[in-house]
Design a binder for these strands. Structure first.
Lengths: 213, 213
DNA sequence: TAGATTGTTAATCGATTAACAATC
DNA sequence: TAGATTGTTAATCGATTAACAATC
């Protein structure tokens, strides 16, 4: 029932697409249309749903409202998810102001930084000293952290978070964090994403002339 | 030879890890250690390398310097890659200040926004009117764009970019862009990444008590 | 040389897709 | 009813891994 990461990411995408369909006034939807909106096959949609016991009506498709409710429940979106952010540098500060998280029910309730000049208890999201992180995380039972510290500090900061009880980390440092089995790490590396794009654009450009001949 | 996206992303990770090994004074490396640093198997490393004709020395491993050079060449990192950014909102502005790109040889040479109040020709990265984007992209032969506009504007802005000759887009809108076959889209969705993490942390938490019994 | 590591093949694994019976 | 869509099984596809001969 846990399924793989890609499957869960698709559930999020289905949910987002369904919200858009609902905004447009739709009430029911067929797997074919939902698949199209998300860029997968209809078989994939039905398979994913069946893995989570989501069923529709043969010939009648799926009720959008019920589907959104079910997906939100699976994805833990029925309650606000409190997270902390560690590393209030350029990217970290931007994420603190990134209002899409709030819209999606994800609340950064505090940020931490090692640099005393960054500490600011009065900003909309308080920025505290890294030294206070462990206690804060424990007393507030925070399970998820966003890690936006410099590369060289990533592993040691991560270790602090683990010891404080963090169970999931969204890591922006281009480092493979050594983790214990009970903490999950999702890596986001924007430079790598761009490099990837550059690579494929370049190979396609090199190939194109051959095709034209 | 094109290979799949995951393979190319691994090449970027190998490259990053190798640069760190080099910093630490290493000259040679075995597939086993590189695999460990990146979190894959040594067979995977050797397989990836062989796909790109990279060879080492049996019994002697790989020369780090030569390897970095080769990977940089494959990934197009021998020259600075110019890109544009479209949508100078919260996230867009942060990415403009995100110096990791510059460090990685990726230069945002201009940004565009539809909001006249955002236009600023004197900022370090000039912010121009969206109306000027097509001409700018064409005259400068820009192939890659970072798209950070609001969800509802994403598709129409994307269409403008396509017509201007953009071949690769790093898309931050939670929308599946309808693209032509000759433009590649990489999606980054931070809220979805966090949702994913939340999901797996929650299921693990629910399962843990069962394991303890 | 003996031992260790690469390079590559074949086996495994898992995810996606096609296909179709069930059924509304 | 006839037709269309779901739910699920089996087939396909592709990526990862194990294993080992080649060889430094």
């Amino acid at each position: 029932m846990i399924s793989n990461k890609n499957c869960i990411i698709r559930l999020s995408r289905y949910k987002n697409a369904l919200v858009r369909f609902k905004t447009l006034g739709f009430v029911k939807i067929f797997s074919e249309y939902l698949a199209d909106a998300v860029g997968v096959t209809s078989a994939q949609v039905r398979k994913d749903f069946s893995l989570f016991g989501i069923s529709g009506n043969k010939r009648g498709g799926y009720q959008i409202d019920a589907l959104i409710t079910k997906l939100n429940s699976i994805l833990g979106k029925n309650e606000v998810q409190n997270v902390v952010l560690v590393g209030a540098g350029q990217l970290g500060s931007a994420l603190m102001r990134y209002n899409t998280f709030e819209k999606e029910g994800i609340k950064i309730i505090a940020a931490f930084d090692i640099d005393p000049s960054k500490i600011n208890l009065k900003s909309p999201i308080p920025i505290l000293s890294l030294a206070e992180a462990a206690l804060f995380i424990e007393t507030n039972s925070i399970k998820i952290a966003i890690l936006t510290v410099p590369d060289m500090a990533a592993q040691q900061t991560f270790d602090i978070l683990i010891r404080a009880g963090i169970k999931g980390v969204l890591n922006f440092a281009p480092i493979e964090l050594k983790t214990s089995s009970d903490c999950i790490v999702n890596n986001v590396n924007l430079a790598v994403e761009l490099e990837n794009l550059i690579y494929f654009v370049n190979v396609t450009a090199k190939e194109a002339p051959l095709i034209k001949i």
